[in-house]
Amino acid sequence: MNQRTEHLLAEVLPHFLSGMSVNFGIAGIALAIGLTLGALFVIARSRGGWIAWVAGAVVALMRAAPTFVIMFFLLNAVPQGGGLPGTLIVAFALVPYSTAYVSDNGSKAIDQWRAGSHLAGLLFLPNIARAFFVLVMSSSVGAAIGVHEGIAVLLHEAEHLHAFGDKLVLFAIGVGCFGIPLQATLAATRFMQNHLGDRAARLGR
């Protein structure tokens, strides 16, 4: 391990991990709000009639709205950004995605549950874990409005490095830190899906 890499690990890593905690915090807030709103939309969509149609249309809009643009909309179109700190602006920008995701997957899970496939319905839980990590990764857009999350810390540190190779080492550390929990989550999700699938097959036999 050369001196530069040692410096990166000793000096930058703690800052980066502190920034990553912001990513997890943002994702947690966005998911909590998304679960609440998403549940309401699931109920509305299950009612049928015009309420379901309106709820479906709103969810379609939320599904289509780009997070990055919503973030700038909240920052600029709402007077003074609504007085919100940057982290909350990013979290709120992610809410349409999380709400639409919860609503879509929740509606599907309820349909499967009602159809008697309880285990298929339970796939909702690993899907939420997957959504959480999508939110963690997406929260890096906060760097564009000055939020001190993980990627912002990396980019800030990278500006002090001159060699492209050094920057790549720094970025690799970042990818590793984001990647390990992500891949672990994906593996756990796959395991849970397989487990539920096996149980469903056994019950079927």
């Binding site: 990764m137 997406s138 890096s140 857009v141 760097a143 564009a144 993980g150 990627i151 990396l154 980019l155 970025f171 970042g174 990818v175 590793g176 984001f178 990647g179 390990i180 992500l182 891949q183 994906l186």
Partner: peptide
């Protein structure tokens, strides 16, 4: 795996 683990902003930069 690397691309999946890299936030899109970092991939972009």
């Amino acid at each position: 795996i690397v691309l999946q683990s890299s936030p899109i902003l970092l991939t972009l930069v």
